[in-house]
Design a protein around this nucleic acid. Structure first.
Length: 858
DNA sequence: GACCTGCTGCGGCTTG
């Protein structure tokens, strides 16, 4: 039997001359039967309509009168997206449907872009559907009488949930939802009449929309929370078979292609051939600096592209980025060089080709990017993989295989992030206040805080009211007052400061680059600008700029004619090769070692692998290769776990520590995504170390790690963000930021104080846990060690660097130094080498070049 | 024989 609502929708489809999406029926059935759940569908598959239309049908069925007589008030649907830009597009699409079927609804957005007038209008009369971001949702929860806004809510949708899951923004969504769920239950009890006639179906429904990830079931669990019974949950899968063609660009002369490097401009001619025969191409690079370099290289060598080429990355001014996006839409551009900044967002129909320069580091990321091309239903996505060094070409083969086998990375949800919870508690205290028992119960329904203990919760309560054990004497930290059991912020100043700092995204302070004549180009880092002298030229935003002066965090520039100049680099996150892609990469390597040569990438790499076998060994899956050689610089040991650079970093420090227990030594450490190197100026007793069954063991792992690297420093860095999110430091009023150094110093000081006087402080504990989980990838490190223990160790003494070793030896910038020797021993050793007088001024050439200090990030 | 990495995302304006 077809309901009235369904009929209206079907008519709409007919009017549009659209076919129903294949998963539309299933989605409709699930929604109309009152389920909550997760819709697994890629972007561009019509997922917005798939959810919005059943929602409309459901409404029309239940309130046919309202549908025709416009008698409706209040928010019915809340739609959360991770991107401001998405809200506008979706709003338009929804409004069109409503207008088409004659439903007099208002669809509105509420983000940081929303003007004060619009916000006022929103308050005066609530729209039926509101599109927003996690941050804006929390800002609404920080308003007085927010319960009135949300009490009639029927459905919450979280779009692009895979993007938020696994982040603190995701936890923010979980917490916000828990509040809305409990509001819905309250109003259910109160409601008599109005729109909430039938209690049975008035319960809040929650739907997530997610691209395919490795843990979809868990994604649904996290979104819905622990109080959702499984029989009310549905998973709807779109099964949209998007045709994807992947091609690796093979360097013409593989013998001469560089063994190391990350830029890849050597293959510019091949890439430009692809660009020439495509309509519109996106060239994805891994770093902002790399996109500047590529843009520069294209303009230099293919000047005819001036005017039809653009660049897009996160440090460019918003106006510029918006212009690029519009120009893409309008088919005014032939090629855009970009970073992940174009991973998501508005659909760019004209794009028919995607080029990925360098390793995409993960299967999902590559799929996402490839999907930016051929965005019409039924169109083919075409993606090219461009290796930046020889061995990386094998990743091309691995990517193809992973996609064929349907391997996807998981997004692990974050747990017990106390900083986010503190912020949420103060948010509620700022608006209408909260009661401890009720809030504890609500918070426990979230996946993130399912294991939160009451004593921990009490610690947080104490923290926001009394500053905890440590900060009790500072007024600054006494934010929340308790009146008759109600936790509430009474100070207007505290409330305002809190609203100013809602959110979980923290960022480094940067220098804005502006023309002398006004107009902003974007931002660069302070460290880059400090390298420049007035009159120097640098390249940024695709232009040659002359640096004039710095004033109030702004670098002023004017146009330069010089074709040479520094290109800025930015310090961003370090993405390791994902464990899934690493695993397929090892499989491919095993095929190579067994002489299987079906992939064109493997065929092309034959000379390289031949040389590796000749100079050393090609490890099969049951083997673990270690290479050892001596040079002027000292004794080198190279290990190849193929587990991504973060794991290698931890493993390198760990093994260095374990070796140094046999014989004290100072190690220099270098690593890439495939392996790592230990270097010391004395003989390393590696055979002896390998005989010890505990060398690769996970016994005492945490202990040994804490001895081997500066976990304090790692936690301190993590603590900076935590303190920020937890509201322990104030970053200043908009437009007049607190100087970064002050912020750095005060979080550092707080960390010291806590560490010393309150080591069980929840935020400090969180800092150590985060360092372990995200900086060291402890879980993966364990798994890798366990795997290695089952493998046969193949130790090869080599004469000269192998194709495997070379890129690591080159990767000296990430070199770290681990010292277990006493200072006297080191001085004595250097004295023996240089003669006593010179010791003080002459470090070894290697360490001068690479720096003894740890790289930023640690 | 030859090199030199590190992404994205949001929000807020006036008080002490």
């Amino acid at each position: 039997m077809t309901s009235k609502g369904q009929k209206v929708i079907q008519q709409w489809y007919k009017q549009k001359q659209w076919k129903q999406f294949p998963f539309q029926k299933e989605m409709e059935e699930a929604y109309l039967s009152g389920f909550s759940g997760l819709l697994n569908a890629p972007t561009g598959s019509g997922k917005t309509f798939a959810l919005f239309l059943p929602f409309l049908a459901d409404f029309i069925n239940k309130y046919p009168d309202t549908y025709t007589t416009q008698k409706n008030n209040g928010l019915l649907m809340l739609w959360i997206t991770p991107l401001r830009a998405l809200t506008n597009d979706i709003r338009k699409a929804m409004q069109e449907v409503c207008d088409d079927i004659g439903l007099p609804w208002r669809i509105m957005t509420r983000t940081g872009d929303t003007s004060a007038a619009e916000k006022a209008a929103l308050k005066r009369k609530l729209p039926e559907v509101l599109l927003t971001t996690p941050e804006s949702l929390h800002l609404m929860l920080a308003q007085k009488e927010y319960n009135k806004v949300f009490k009639g809510l029927r459905v919450m949708v979280c779009d692009e949930w895979h993007e938020l899951l696994g982040t603190k923004r995701g936890v923010q969504v979980e917490l916000g939802l828990s509040k809305l769920k409990s509001l819905s239950r309250e109003s259910e009890l109160e409601s008599k009449g109005g729109l909430r006639l039938q209690t049975s179906d008035s319960e809040l429904r929650i739907w997530g929309i997610s691209a395919t990830i490795g843990n979809l079931e868990q994604a649904a669990e996290v979104l819905l929370g622990n109080d959702f019974s499984p029989e009310r949950i549905r998973m709807v899968r779109a099964h949209v078979n998007k045709k994807l063609v992947i091609e690796s660009v093979i360097p013409p002369n593989i013998e001469n292609y560089s063994w190391a490097g990350h830029i890849g401009v050597k293959l510019l001619p091949q890439v430009m051939e692809i660009v020439a025969k495509s309509k519109t191409t996106l060239i994805f690079t891994n770093t902002r600096s790399q996109s500047e370099i590529w843009y520069h290289a294209i303009i230099d060598n293919y000047p005819e592209y001036a005017g039809i080429m653009a660049m897009h990355h996160g440090s460019l001014d918003n106006d510029l980025r918006n212009w690029v996006e519009q120009a893409l839409h309008a088919e005014a551009l032939k090629v855009v060089v970009c970073t992940s900044s174009l991973d998501l967002g508005v659909d760019f129909r004209p794009v028919d080709t995607v080029v990925q320069v360098g390793s995409p580091k993960g299967v999902a990321r590559f799929m996402q990017r490839a999907g930016r091309s051929g965005h019409h239903p039924g169109a083919i996505s075409k993606a090219y993989f461009v290796p930046t060094h020889s061995l990386e070409l094998l990743e091309g083969a691995a990517l193809k295989q992973a996609i064929k086998k349907g391997v996807f990375e998981s997004r692990d949800p974050m747990l017990l992030t106390m900083d986010v919870l503190i912020q949420f508690m103060v948010t509620l205290a700022v608006s209408d206040g909260f009661r401890a028992d009720e809030l504890f119960k609500e918070v426990k329904t979230t996946f993130a805080f399912a294991d939160l203990r009451r004593d921990e919760f009490n610690q947080l309560l104490d923290f926001i009211t009394n500053g905890g054990k440590t900060l009790a004497q500072y007024d600054e930290f006494l934010k929340v007052e308790v009146e008759n059991g109600l936790f509430k912020v009474n100070s207007r100043r505290v409330a305002m400061r809190h609203r100013l700092s809602i959110g979980t995204i923290t960022s480094e302070l940067s220098i804005r680059v502006k023309w002398l004549s006004g107009g902003s180009l974007g931002t660069v880092e302070e460290s880059f600008i400090s390298k420049l002298k007035p009159g120097n030229t640098f390249w940024f935003a695709g232009r040659s700029l002359e640096f004039i002066k710095v004033k109030e965090m702004t670098a002023y520039v004017k146009k330069s004619k010089s074709t040479k100049g520094l290109i800025p680099s930015w310090n961003g996150g370090r993405m390791p090769l994902s464990s899934q892609l690493s695993a397929v990469f090892r499989d491919k390597l095993d095929e190579v070692a067994n002489g299987i040569e079906t992939d064109i990438e493997v065929k092309a790499l034959k000379p390289l692998f031949g040389l590796q076998a000749e100079l050393s060994h090609l490890p099969q899956s049951h083997e673990f290769l270690i290479e050892s050689f001596k040079s002027r610089e000292g004794h080198h040991l190279l290990f190849y776990p193929f587990e991504g650079r973060l794991v290698h970093e931890g493993m390198a420090s760990l093994l260095a520590y374990r070796i140094s227990k046999i014989k004290p030594a100072s190690f220099s450490i270098a690593m890439n995504d495939y392996g790592f190197e230990l270097l010391t100026d004395e003989d390393i007793p590696i055979e002896e170390a390998l005989e010890d069954a505990d060398f690769f063991s996970i016994n005492n792992l945490i202990d040994d790690i804490q001895h081997s690297l500066n976990s304090n420093e790692m936690a301190r860095r993590r603590f900076r963000d935590i303190a920020h999110i937890g509201g322990l430091v104030f970053t200043g009023y908009p437009g007049q930021p607190v100087k970064n150094k002050h912020l750095q110093a005060s979080t550092s000081l707080l960390f010291e104080v806590f560490n010393e006087y309150e080591p069980d402080n929840l935020l400090v504990r969180q800092a150590y846990n985060e360092a372990l989980a995200f900086q060291l990838e402890e879980f993966r490190l364990r798994a890798a060690l366990q795997r290695i223990q089952t493998q046969n160790i193949v130790l090869k003494v080599i004469e000269r660097p192998t194709p495997f070793a070379f890129p690591i030896l080159v990767d000296s910038l990430g070199r770290e130094r681990l010292t277990t020797e006493t200072m006297e021993e080191r001085i004595a050793k250097m004295a023996r080498r240089y003669g006593a007088d010179e010791v003080a001024d002459k470090p070894s050439p290697r360490s001068r070049k690479t720096g003894v200090t740890r790289k930023k990030g640690f």
